[in-house]
Design a protein around this nucleic acid. Structure first.
Length: 418
DNA sequence: TACCAGTCAATATA
DNA sequence: TATATTGACTGGTA
């Protein structure tokens, strides 16, 4: 888009919603008012590539993230550079602190997400509740944590967010007033939740696909299928889909999501078991360890699965084995055991720095989060969660042993499979 | 091509 | 109303 056009539209929006250039410049672009005034070139190009061009008014209440605040004190560096330069961060401690600050100051996840992180409320909720350990994150995944860290370090962070909150409220009230006085006015540009609730054009409306909501029976069946085979063959997927009256893409998506969320839950379990107190993971609705767990430690051929009979009887599906790769178990075994149980960690090992701990507990955090996540060789279980973890780890160890044995039976090391 | 990480956004729940 | 959950999607990687 033409930069002059962008500038023109931004100007229009600022006037329309009574937002000063100073505020806009400070919060959105990290520039002074004079700089904003003189903008005729490409104001957004100087921002990090991850910082999307403002598509809306930050105080407009629209549920559209993408315009995080400038990085305090680091305006010369892009977020990617900061992430790349960042030392290992304790993501759990960061999210804990952020949650505290937000709660203490009565600041919402939506506002925080949209202004500070450039993420939606749901993503923020997810991040805060289930932070992945630093070393498990990609560069992109680290970005929000760096932003959070910088935000926490900024002495005026709360103050700025409060300002944003006030601005939002003001803009909202203004809209309310104007919509009351002119019920015919069509303000689709910045209508916030109104937009979400259906003020789109009819064209947009009919493009929207209704969200699929899986029923408890369907979920249960899928979980059982997962226990049988975390990586079902196309044939199994087809069968599951037809039995459950779902689209195959829905089944595929469900398996992807479930695998990924289970993996993430394991990180949380590990962190908590390692010393994190309370915090995330105490939820009961996550895909974590309630009935899906057997899939993780089971041998690849599913011999330990408890769902076999049920799924076959319940769905009439013969789960074929040919294409199951056991990759999920492999990965989870890696993430849980490869650093602790043997020398299996390869080039892509997920061990923390120096092989200190399993889930990337930073040196800083490892002191507070116990010395490691290693499986205790023995000792009484402290609570059911510990038992659960122990079981999982034992299952994963079995898996590793199983594969080691398989590997050992091959003479040529190049044939070894891990 | 299959899988994953990360995210959105609709919906459910507190 | 704020937060949590989750199906779907995008883009990257092996």
């Amino acid at each position: 888009m033409d930069t002059a056009e962008i500038a023109r539209q931004v100007k229009e929006q600022l006037i329309k919603h009574n937002i000063g250039q100073r505020v806009f410049g400070h919060y959105v672009l990290g520039l002074s008012q004079e700089s904003i005034n003189g903008l005729s070139g490409d104001p957004l190009a100087s921002q990090s590539s991850s910082i999307k061009a403002p598509s809306d008014d930050p105080s407009g209440g629209e549920s559209q993230p993408g315009t995080p605040l400038p990085l305090p004190g680091h305006t010369g560096l892009s977020i990617q550079e900061l992430v790349a330069m960042s030392p290992e961060l304790d993501t759990y401690a960061i999210t804990k602190k952020v949650k505290e600050v937000l709660t203490d100051n009565n600041l919402g996840q939506r506002l925080f997400g949209e202004t500070i992180l450039g993420l939606t409320q749901g993503s923020v909720s997810d991040l805060l509740a289930r932070p992945k350990p630093w070393h498990k994150l990609s560069l992109k995944g680290r970005e929000p944590f760096v932003r959070m860290q910088l935000w926490l370090q900024d002495p005026h962070s709360v103050e700025k967010l409060m300002d944003m909150k006030r601005l939002e409220k003001k803009a909202y009230m203004k809209r309310r007033l104007s919509s009351l006085s002119d019920s015919h006015s069509v303000d689709v540009g910045l209508v916030g939740t109104d937009y979400m609730q259906g003020s789109q054009s009819p064209g947009q409306q009919h493009l929207k696909k209704p969200r699929v909501v899986l029923g408890p029976e369907e979920k249960e069946a899928l979980k059982r299928a997962y226990q049988q085979k975390p990586y079902p063959s196309p044939k199994t997927i087809e069968e599951l889909a037809s039995q459950l009256n779902l689209k195959t893409s829905t089944v595929i998506n469900w398996f992807h999501n479930y695998r990924s969320r289970i993996r993430r839950e394991l990180f949380i379990e590990e962190i908590q078991a390692a010393g994190g107190v309370g915090g995330p993971g105490s939820d009961a609705g996550s895909p974590s360890l309630r009935g899906s767990k057997s899939g993780e430690g089971d041998s690849c051929d599913g011999t330990e699965s408890e769902g076999t009979v049920e799924i076959r009887q319940g769905l009439g599906i013969g789960l074929d084995d040919q294409s199951g790769t056991c990759k999920d178990q492999d990965m989870e075994a890696e993430s849980e055991t490869d650093c602790t149980s043997s020398g299996l960690a390869g080039p892509g090992s997920s061990c923390g720095p120096g092989g200190l701990a399993l889930f990337g507990l930073t040196e800083a955090s490892s002191s507070s989060q116990a010395s490691s996540t290693n499986i205790p060789a023995s000792g009484p279980a402290r609570n059911p969660r510990d038992n659960n973890l122990r079981k999982k780890k034992a299952a994963n160890l079995n898996n590793i042993i199983h594969r080691l044995e398989k590997a050992a039976s091959k003479e040529d090391p190049s044939e070894w499979e891990f």
